Amino acid sequence: MIDATDRAPLVTVGIPVYQGERYLPETLASVMAQDHPAVEILISDNGSGDGTEEICRSAAAGDDRVRYLRYADNRGGTWNYNNLIREARGSLLTITAADDVKLPTFVSSCVAALEAAGSGCVLAMTRTRIIDEHGDVVEDLGDASLTIDEPTPHQRMAHFMRAQAPHLVYGLVRTETFRATRGFRPVVGDDYVMLTELATRGFFTLVPEQSFLQRKHPLAHSADRAGDVTFYRPQGHGRFAFPHTRLDVDLLRACLVAPLPVAGKTRCLAASIRNWIVPQWRGAAGDVRDALGISWKPRRPVR
């Protein structure tokens, strides 16, 4: 087990998984290879019926840093992500999707960045590259300016909304800050809502090295509109779900529940409207069109 006397902070690397047998071994290998001396690997398995359970039990048997939580039913992606926040033992938590890869220095470099930035910093993230189903790099994100360290929450919100950078949610976050939010919300685009809540509580810092590999592939739930809806709400239905409208509403709610004075909440509301809701108006309009049963061309949901 991890030595409790180790002066390095305990970091939980949380992996939410459902039917993840194809890419999970590579994800687990990348997490096990982290060079930080105090890592807990927490897997929350949302009732997978494929080979996921066998992969996870084998990993737990071979590495005492791995804690495997198996649940009989699929309660949805939102529940699974929030379960990691509830169950994490580390003072710092980074969530890793079961098809992504974090290079060996990811955790240690983010820990160092958080410590250097001070207590006002709630999230540290490395730069990101996109890989395909084969693990080949297909895109370098233009994210060299994603140090979201503006002095006010509404400025920070405007920054990541304009940059459309939901991948920041896979950075290293102070666990107590995660727990101070409402958790991940059951809406398509929950990463934007979570980042909004985090940004109202502190600033983000960027590690210049590219240590996060985010996988985009045809089987990802976000590649399919109906699949994205049912990921968050397993009993949901693509039609009448109003995914874009629900996202807009939850972003506004995130501003209203922020631990800010009225003036600060008002500025955050204005930032959400100006930098997200108005530029993304076609999404809400499409929700209405879908509800009315008007023919539409498939649109890639916001992620």
Rank of each mutant, 00 (worst) to 15 (best):
I2M: 10
I2T: 12
A4T: 11
R7A: 15
V13K: 00
V13T: 01
P16G: 06
V17I: 00
E21N: 09
R22C: 11
Y23R: 09
E26H: 14
S30W: 01
P37E: 02
P37G: 06
P37N: 04
E40T: 05
I41H: 10
D45I: 03
D45K: 00
D45Q: 08
S48N: 14
G51I: 08
G51S: 14
G51L: 10
S58N: 14
A59V: 04
A61M: 11
D63H: 09
R65S: 11
L69F: 08
A72L: 00
A72W: 07
D73T: 08
R75I: 05
R75L: 02
R75M: 01
G76M: 11
W79V: 04
W79L: 05
W79R: 03
N82T: 01
I85V: 15
A88W: 01
R89Y: 07
G90C: 08
T96P: 09
A97H: 11
D99L: 10
D100T: 09
V101D: 11
V101C: 10
K102L: 09
T105R: 09
S108M: 02
V111P: 01
V111C: 04
A113P: 03
G118I: 02
G120H: 14
G120T: 14
A124I: 03
T128H: 07
R129Y: 04
I131R: 09
E133A: 15
H134I: 05
G135P: 10
D136P: 06
V137C: 06
V138F: 05
L146C: 04
T147V: 08
P153R: 07
H154I: 02
R156H: 09
M157V: 12
M157G: 13
H159T: 12
F160A: 02
M161P: 12
A163W: 00
Q164P: 10
V169D: 11
G171A: 02
T175E: 03
T177S: 01
G183A: 00
R185E: 10
P186Y: 05
P186M: 06
V193D: 02
L195W: 03
L198N: 03
L198C: 01
R201I: 05
R201L: 05
R201Y: 03
L206A: 07
V207F: 08
Q210G: 13
L213T: 02
L213D: 08
R215V: 08
K216W: 14
S222A: 13
A226H: 11
D228T: 09
F231G: 08
R233C: 14
G236N: 07
H237A: 10
F242Q: 07
P243R: 00
H244K: 12
H244F: 13
R246M: 07
V249K: 06
D250N: 12
R253N: 13
C255P: 14
L256I: 12
L260M: 06
P261T: 03
A263L: 07
G264T: 12
T266S: 02
C268G: 08
C268D: 03
A270H: 11
A271E: 01
W276V: 06
W276I: 00
I277N: 00
V278P: 13
Q280E: 15
R282S: 15
A285E: 07
G286C: 00
R289H: 15
R289P: 15
D290I: 12
D290K: 15
A291K: 11
I294C: 12
I294E: 09
S295N: 11
W296E: 14
P298S: 00
P298H: 06
R299C: 13
R299A: 15
R300H: 12
